[in-house]
Write a protein that binds this DNA or RNA. Sequence first.
DNA 1: TCTGGGGTCCTAGGACCC
DNA 2: TCTGGGGTCCTAGGACCC
Length: 421
Amino acid sequence: MYALVDCNSFYCSCERVFRPELKSKPVIVLSNNDGCAVSRSPEAKRLGIKMGDPFFKIKELCAKNNVAVFSSNFANYSNLSNRVMNIIDQCSPHFEVYSIDEAFSRVDGIEDIEKWARLLREKILKETKIPVSIGIGRTKVLAKLANRFAKENENSFGVFIFNCEKEENEILKKMKVSSVWGIGKQSSLKLKSIGIKTAFELKFFSNEARIQKLLTKVGLQIKHELMGVDCLSLNLHPEKKQIMCSRTFGSPIYEKNSLRESIANYVTNAATKLRRQNSLCTQVSIFARTNAFKDIPQYQFLERVKLVTPTCDTRKLIKEAFKLVDRGFKGGYEYSKAGVRLDDFFSQNEYQTDLFAFSDTKADLELMYVIDRINLRLGEDKVRSASCGFNSKAWQMNRRFKSPRYFTHWCELPVFNKNQS
DNA sequence: TCTGGGGTCCTAGGACCC
DNA sequence: TCTGGGGTCCTAGGACCC
């Protein structure tokens, strides 16, 4: 049996941890640059705010209904996420962090699963103030559906278990096939064309070759999971296979030097993540583009280079990225977004060297890790490449509604006055 | 004025090898 | 007139997820 623990409206719940007066009030959290709504409390959903709604379109609605609006604050969200994950880890024999707000857990061997789930839920709420829902089923796909059911039905009080197949089938009959994990818009349209509309109909569709033809082997796997055949086991040590860092600029940029500066920052960020999982990469890509929503001359480029020897050295990666900027950049355009992607990873303990080219030395590696440690203690960019720039720049993000970084910055610690409860 | 930022997996088809 | 059979690796693009 698998349990899926999923935080409710995660970013909104995080904002409420330090603003308890916002309980039962509509709250939304915006994407970077205050672009779109990416998390909504149930109250905000009831006002009709959709996932991904651009903020400028719902601004008035928010003002009229006293919606608490926040810029995203990942320092806080990842900190709270770690706390939640640690508790799940303590309480489960095996578990997999699936996303910032979700974890799968194997619960075979636990005697009273429902009791376990309710206790876990209480513990997380008590120790982190983050409400979660828990769904339990024979496979990951079924656990996902159970979780959805737990969220949608108030009388489940946050926990739902598929106990027997008969009950499973009753619920599958009520679930649209598009609410099955892994069946998106395109796949549901294809399934509709052969008469499948519910999760139940997919589970019992007899022509498996037809499903595979239509939805590839991924789709067939989902069908098997619905039938109770475990195809997606736990991934206990997920390592990234690619790392990406990209941003929309606070205001557009026109100069190559500004683009280079923003790219240097994204590379720095990506390389730090790369070292955190003790990997090296052998491919760097960068891209930049104009704003497709605007009626202006459009241009975009994507440039890529393969490295002779794998590296995680920020200095080398910036150098390569700059060559790519030089290759792709064309003047006369209004760039609104850029990013970098690292691919083709190797472990630091095991990689192919080159007879003629130099690999990173031990000293290079040590330097990088020393810088990482300093920045971890003293703040993100205390030691950095000069090419990352010095003053605040046009390309930096707008975040007009950001809450303090309560966990990670001394000067932003919360202050409560005595009379406050 | 204003529209995010990450990831994974699969397939078809091209280029190449013997 | 007639043109094999078996592979590998890579990439672009699609679909999905949070």
